[in-house]
Structure formats: structure tokens, C-alpha cells
Nucleic acid binder design. Structure first.
Lengths: 210, 210
DNA sequence: TAGATTGTTAATCGATTAACAATC
DNA sequence: TAGATTGTTAATCGATTAACAATC
């Protein structure tokens, strides 16, 4: 069975991104040392992560970049197509709905919904924005398992309830609302403002020292 | 000195968000039990976090919501104004540049830059998009310490170098590029696609079991 | 061979949780 | 008083790192 630690799991996207970049310029192998320096983590930790992924390196050369990248993709299920709806067609929803990079990871946006009559019917990339009232029916029609939630905080829980009832089992939550869902439904909270808070704390302490 | 664990630090934005919501509806106290249930973490952990923040609760009532919120804001420096530039005026840059919620945390966007002649001169919210060639001069003029980077991956490192040379010491990085910066410069990587990867892994394992 | 590198084990470090005393 | 709750200590769990053997 595929099992790695939570902490290692969080490193996989970062490994993946470096591997893709190196593969793009034709490199074949990368050492744990190099990976550790780019990511600013310990070298042994990289080797441990590789061992957890059941990837073996070559003495004197390091790890095969393509093997490793494919292994991460397999592990994360990036080779399957995941169809998703973008719920909320504001700037952030638009950014996510039109981001072409997602294709590479198997994420396919199949619809964009909003509640604003002015937006409904307009085009976002190749998608016509449809009414939020069609959320449940679209989920059922396409057997959607994942929604990308970019609506105002006040609407987040209600729309999640509707989506879950219609069959969704994963919510990528870009709202600051802590969502309540039944067991078996997975939430990923982006809470973008959290990133700023970390930097704000740093900036405050730098200036305190001056 | 203000010192809490890394893990506790990551919980602060989530506490803060709940406290704001409860304060908005007029609640005065919240127990560690309630916080732990909303966030789906252990009750003792909440109390330990409070102790780390040097916040004391009241027996039988819990923690004062406003005291706790203010303490978190103080700790994170959210009461100071942080001026920042949005570098890259695509959909994501636009979303971040126009997000009104940032004000509440002291984040003030003072400019938006892009390299596309079609975009330069257009308005994003109250900001006129200016040429990326003015990056260094704008940083110096406003004594900017933080940039919000939403440019294509290929441009990320070069623009970071320019910004750091001009005086920036914090980069909120929404590109997938791992940035290389001198000591003393803090990077926060958003790597949005990482959130999808976590969900993709979950979805894969759910369907494998069927 | 010497050097570079992987892979593994044991030690250490950090975070979470259980247990329970204190108190309103 | 009994019940609800905080606050703290010690135990446990999980993650990282140091040390070092193996090997190309």
C-alpha cells in the first residue's frame, strides 16, 4: 500500500515542480544533494522521501528524473483525469478556471458557475458561466467528485452542502470559511491570507529589531 | 520574546478567521472545545496554543474572543500597514490586487505592474497598471518590503533579483518557481497546485477501493 | 583507488495527546 | 456541590538528522 508521512506528502509537489523543470532542459539524473539545496531541506530527508516512494537511486549519479516524476504522478493520481467545477466566477475563480497549467496534472475544469445574473451567460475561457442553481444537476450529470470553491464566505457552507448531497467528495476551498462536511468528504483549505500572515509576522520582527 | 512553534504558527490564521466570525455575531467567549471541534484538532492542543500566545482563559467560560483576536493580530503584526506591489496583472494578480479583505489585515496594495503593453495603462480597481521596468524605482520610492509575485514562472527569478536588489525582503510567491534569494529575504511559496495534488491523491485512493 | 553518492539505522528533536490537578 | 472548563506535566508519537556502511 502507498503510505508516506504527512510531511513528506507536502513535499511532493515541490519535488515534482523541480523535476519537471530539469526534465525540460534535458537532465536525466538529480542527486539528493541538489534537491536538498534547491528546496532548502536536509539531504538525508530527501533520500528518506525517495525510499518512502520506493524509488531507488544510482550510486554516483542520483535519481532518475523521469522515473521519479512519474512515480510522484502515479502516487498522487495525476495521471487520471479529474473533472471539476469552478463555483464562483470572480477574479479568483476566473484565474483558476483559465489556468492552463492544470491540464498537466489531470485537472479538467468542466464548468463555471455563479449567481450574478450579469455574469451568467458570459464566457470565461471556453466556458459559459452558468447559474449556481444548476450546481446539483451539473454535478450529477458529469459525476463530478471535486468542486473548486471561490465564492463569498457567506455562501460557502450552503453551496458545499448542496454539492456534497449531489455527490461531491472533495472540496478545494479558497474561501476563509471553515467548512463542515460529513466523514468521507475531503476538504483542502487554501486560506490564502494565511500566507500573508506569515510574511507579516516576519516583517514586523525585522522592523522591531532595527 | 514572541516565540511559538511552527505548527502552532500555521494554526493562527485559522483561529483568527473563526474569532472574527464569532465576534461578528456578538459572541464574547469561546472554549477550547469549540475551537478544537471547528478546526478538527485536539482540545489540549488549542489550550497549549493559547498558553504559547500568553493568553489566559476563564474557568467555565473559555477565552475572550476579542482579546484573543487582538493578540493574534499583534503577534502577526496585522495592526501595522504593510505596503506591497502586485507584480503580474493576470487573472490571479487582478484577484489579489482587488481583494478588499486584505485591508482588514493591514495589507495595502500600492501598485500593480505588468510587462504587457496592452495591459499597461489600464485600470485594475483603483490602480493603473504600470510597466514592469518601473519595479525597482517603485520599490525605492515607496520603501516597499513585500512583493506579490504572480508572473509566469520563467520571469519569476529575474524579477525577484531586481526586487531584492531594490530593497524587498519578503516575497509572496504564487509562481511554481523555487526562488533563490540571499539570507534575510523571506519567501512564502503558495504553489497552488499542491492543494490539488493532495485532493487528487485522495480521489485516486477512494476510487481504487471501489 | 579515491570520491561521490545512496540507503539505513539509531539518536535527536519537535509536536501532539493523555492524564489530572486547579478553580470558578 | 457538581459540572465545566482551564492549565500544566509527562508520555507518546511522528519527523528530522547524524552517523556510517555499502557500492559504483
Amino acid at each position: 500500500m502507498d503510505r508516506i508521512s504527512k510531511a513528506a506528502f507536502r513535499r511532493l509537489p515541490r519535488y515534482h515542480q523541480i523535476l519537471s523543470a530539469y526534465e525540460g532542459v534535458g537532465r536525466e539524473y538529480i542527486s539528493s544533494r541538489e534537491l536538498s539545496e534547491i528546496l532548502d531541506i536536509n539531504e538525508t530527508l530527501v533520500r528518506k522521501d525517495m525510499a518512502d516512494l520506493q524509488i531507488r537511486g544510482k550510486q554516483n549519479q542520483g535519481y532518475s528524473i523521469s522515473t521519479l516524476r512519474l512515480r510522484i504522478e502515479e502516487f498522487l493520481g495525476l495521471q487520471d483525469i479529474t473533472e471539476a467545477l469552478v463555483v464562483g466566477a470572480g477574479h479568483l475563480g476566473t484565474a483558476l478556471a483559465t489556468y492552463v497549467g492544470f491540464e498537466q496534472y489531470g485537472l479538467k475544469i468542466v464548468g463555471v458557475l455563479d449567481n450574478d445574473p450579469e455574469r451568467i451567460g458570459s464566457m470565461i475561457g471556453t466556458h459559459e458561466v452558468v447559474s449556481i442553481f444548476r450546481l446539483a444537476s451539473m454535478i450529477q450529470k458529469h459525476a463530478i467528485k471535486l468542486i473548486i470553491l471561490t465564492v463569498p464566505k457567506a455562501a460557502a457552507q450552503e453551496l458545499t452542502d448542496i454539492a456534497v448531497k449531489a455527490g461531491v467528495i472533495a472540496v478545494w476551498n479558497f474561501t476563509p470559511q471553515e467548512l463542515n462536511v460529513p466523514d468521507g468528504v475531503r476538504i483542502r483549505n487554501e486560506q490564502i491570507v494565511g500566507g500573508f500572515m506569515a510574511l507579516s509576522h516576519y516583517l514586523k520582527n525585522v522592523s522591531d529589531k532595527e
